[in-house]
């Protein structure tokens, strides 16, 4: 073989390598997508019964100490289809109350298992922002992702413990159905087309979680009596924990304060 033939063979090999990697990655992605729904709680696993007559409730208010940071304005000018509220939701504090704090029972439930809710939870892309900004789901719970904008979004979770994926969703496209198999707190989700679009998904194994509203309030119902660690997690301000003891039919108020960093 002369040099020209060798050169041609080398180029074909390189091209082949590129195509092989490209195709195999797509296949892997499809395989993983196929297995994703089965990562829900296995059918053989049964939930631990809780006596409804003894369950307790924990509620409270999450406060923000110090001067609330001035909301940052988002520049949406790079896409004419993006209109609406263009304020960042990194720290939403009003009258000393902090919104978007994920509150959950971090410890104390032992090896109890819980059924995954059959109902989907929803992430809505509207006015080029995610709604809600912070979401709580159970492992394996279905998440319906909708695009209500007249522009294409891409949904790109960047997890530490779950599988990463990145899919685009054109306007009026069918909702995407996704779930996360492993527990993960403050799992970032972003849109690479609109870099200001960020939200956080919190994946836990129990249904005992809540997210504070604009008034900083939260409520977790149906907890069996016991000693628990309650975690309050904010995307920027970090995590704070509290130990609590709940008696049967208790209704306890547990407030938590965050300070400006």
């Amino acid at each position: 073989m002369n040099r020209k033939t060798w050169g041609a063979i080398c180029m074909l090999c390189l091209l082949g390598l590129g195509l092989t990697v490209g195709c195999s990655t797509k296949e892997n992605t499809n395989e993983e997508q196929g297995t994703s729904p089965t990562s829900k709680v296995p059918a053989t696993q049964t939930s631990t019964p809780i006596d409804p007559s003894t369950v307790a409730t924990v509620s409270g208010t999450v406060t923000f100490g110090g001067a609330a940071p001035k909301p940052t304005k988002i520049d949406m000018s790079q896409d004419a289809a993006c209109k609406g509220n263009n304020m960042a939701e990194t720290v939403v504090a009003s009258d000393g109350k902090l919104a978007n704090v994920f509150v959950y029972v971090k410890d104390g439930l032992g090896d109890r298992t819980f059924d995954v809710p059959k109902d989907s939870t929803t992430i809505d892309q509207k006015n080029c922002q995610y709604h809600p900004h912070v979401l709580g789901v159970m492992t394996g719970q279905n998440i319906e992702i909708r695009n209500d904008d007249d522009t294409t979004h891409n949904i790109h979770p960047t997890p530490k413990d779950n599988r990463e994926w990145n899919e685009s969703q054109p306007p009026k496209a069918a909702a995407l159905e996704k779930s996360f198999a492993r527990e993960e707190i403050m799992l970032p989700v972003k849109c690479n087309q609109h870099p200001w679009m960020k939200m956080y998904v919190n994946v836990v194994k129990t249904p005992f979680f809540a997210i504070t509203g604009a008034d900083g309030k939260y409520e977790i119902k149906g907890l069996p009596p016991g000693d628990y660690t309650l975690a309050f997690v904010h995307e920027k301000l970090g995590e704070q924990d509290q130990k609590i003891t709940l008696a049967a039919k208790d209704s306890k108020t547990v407030d938590q304060g965050f300070k400006a960093q």
Binding site: M11, L14, L17, G18, V21, G22, T25, K26, H156, N166
Partner: peptide, 17 residues
């Protein structure tokens, strides 16, 4: 060869996030 390798690297970086 470098520009081909560069194209493949660009593709891989997209496919592997």
């Amino acid at each position: 060869c470098t520009v081909i390798a560069q194209g493949i690297l660009g593709g891989l970086t997209v496919l592997f996030y």
